[in-house]
Simulated assay, not measured.
Amino acid sequence: MKISELLAAAQPLQEQLSAWRRDFHRHPEIGYEEIRTSGIVAAHLASLGLEVTTNVGRTGVVGVLRGETPGPTIGLRADMDALPIQDQKTVSYASEVPDTAHLCGHDAHTAILMGAAQLLAGLGRPKKGNIKFVFQPAEEGLAGAREMIKDGVLDNPKVDVMAGLHMFPGLDTGTLGVSKGVAFASADSLTIKILGKGGHAARPHEGVDAIAVAAQVISALQNIPSRMVDPLEPVVITIGKISGGYMGAALAPEVELTGTVRTLSAGVRAQMPAMIEQVVAGVCSSFGAGYELSYGEGYPIVLNDPGMVDLMTETSEELLGEKVWNYIKPSTGGEDFAFYCEKVPGVFFRLGSGNGEERTRYPLHHPKFDLDETALPYGVAMLSAMALNFLNRN
């Protein structure tokens, strides 16, 4: 089948893709708890005659379509986990699990890769090389990609390149966005305990008000991106949670600040722990407070390989007969697809899922996030076409 015919071949899957996606949406599972989801995925891959391995990276599933002769292997990845957020949509497929919902499109990613496996398996074995379908758990902060790599997802057969996509409401359905080079930021965690001295709120001079010191620390941290780092190097430091104090009439003896640090440069990322400690130590010393600082390295930067970006853009034009892609700015969001890109050349691109309706305009992670399901066949066709083009060119 010609690459230009793959979208037409994917369109008849629309009803099935929507059914899969809605089923996953009604029954969301958070990271490393994707038992039901992985079971459905594994059964589908087995029905297609693929080699199936389960429990990869704890709850991940891998399917392999082997070619007639040895050759390179391309991995196609979808993430399966939901978010610990209450679904606020009033739709027939709204989440049935309290405080858990697919508000980042992972249900769609899973359905798309199931569709790609069905389409490619239906075309028969590639003449040479292999296609590996990677259904990954725990992308949302729990590093499922890293766990799958530890379990050998890039081996047997050895994966040479990886490709993945993400639904994006900021782009119209049928259009694509990709970043050449850095695509997503590193995402690290930050916890700061401000250690003060309790006392009566009416006599603050007798204690050390940890809340007042915490307020100064939060403000001072913003001087790092604005005054201590090259202004051409994006840095985001956000404190998202503050815990401390007992009552309005007492000084808080301790306050805990929890946040995140995002950068688009590995070099800048390496400087962050020391810079943050310098600022926190200085502020706390000024007010007679102590501190405890914990800095946790999370996801690395997603670095798209130039050759894989070219494969994606050229394939899209061959598939759709026109240029529907654009280079887009990197995101300061984090993505554990980064771990694959550290091991093999990869590309992670965005698939438009907005159709102008209000329901498709909500951003990722919003309690009312939804998407235009007519985007699903485009995802199936793109991943399938990229896999075939890679094998044909190598």
Rank of each mutant, 00 (worst) to 15 (best):
M1I: 14
E5P: 04
E5Q: 14
L7W: 13
A8C: 05
Q11S: 11
Q11G: 00
L13G: 00
Q14P: 09
A19H: 14
W20E: 10
R22S: 09
H25P: 03
E29F: 07
G31D: 01
R36C: 12
R36A: 13
S38V: 03
T53P: 01
N55G: 09
R58I: 12
V62Y: 00
G67V: 09
P70K: 06
G71H: 05
R77H: 06
R77A: 06
R77K: 12
A78P: 03
Q88Y: 02
Y93S: 10
P98T: 04
P98G: 08
L103H: 02
C104I: 03
H106A: 03
A108I: 08
A108R: 01
L113H: 03
G115N: 09
A117T: 06
A117Q: 05
L119R: 06
L120Q: 00
L120N: 01
A121K: 08
K127E: 15
K128H: 15
G129N: 09
P137F: 00
E139K: 00
G141H: 07
A145V: 06
M148H: 06
M148I: 11
D151W: 06
L154G: 07
N156K: 14
V159T: 15
V161L: 02
M162G: 07
G164V: 10
L165K: 02
H166L: 05
M167R: 03
F168T: 01
G177N: 02
G177V: 01
V178M: 06
S179K: 08
S186W: 03
S186C: 13
A187G: 13
A187R: 07
S189H: 14
L190Q: 05
L190F: 08
L195Q: 14
K197G: 00
K197Y: 01
G198C: 11
R203S: 09
V208T: 14
I211K: 10
S219V: 15
S219A: 13
L221N: 04
D230N: 15
L232T: 13
V236H: 09
G244N: 07
G244H: 09
A252G: 10
E256M: 12
T258G: 08
R262I: 07
T263M: 02
A266S: 12
A274S: 14
E277V: 08
V279W: 06
S285H: 11
F287V: 12
Y295L: 10
V302I: 12
V302F: 01
G307E: 15
G307N: 14
M308T: 03
L320G: 08
L320P: 01
E322F: 08
V324S: 13
Y327A: 10
I328A: 04
T332Y: 00
G334A: 11
F337Y: 13
F337E: 08
F339I: 04
F339Y: 15
E342F: 05
V344E: 09
V344H: 03
V344W: 08
G346K: 06
G346Q: 10
G346W: 07
V347W: 04
F348L: 13
G354Y: 07
G354F: 00
N355I: 10
G356Q: 11
E357N: 13
R361A: 14
H366I: 00
D370C: 06
L371M: 14
T374W: 00
T374H: 09
L376A: 13
L388W: 04
N389D: 07
N389F: 00
N394G: 10
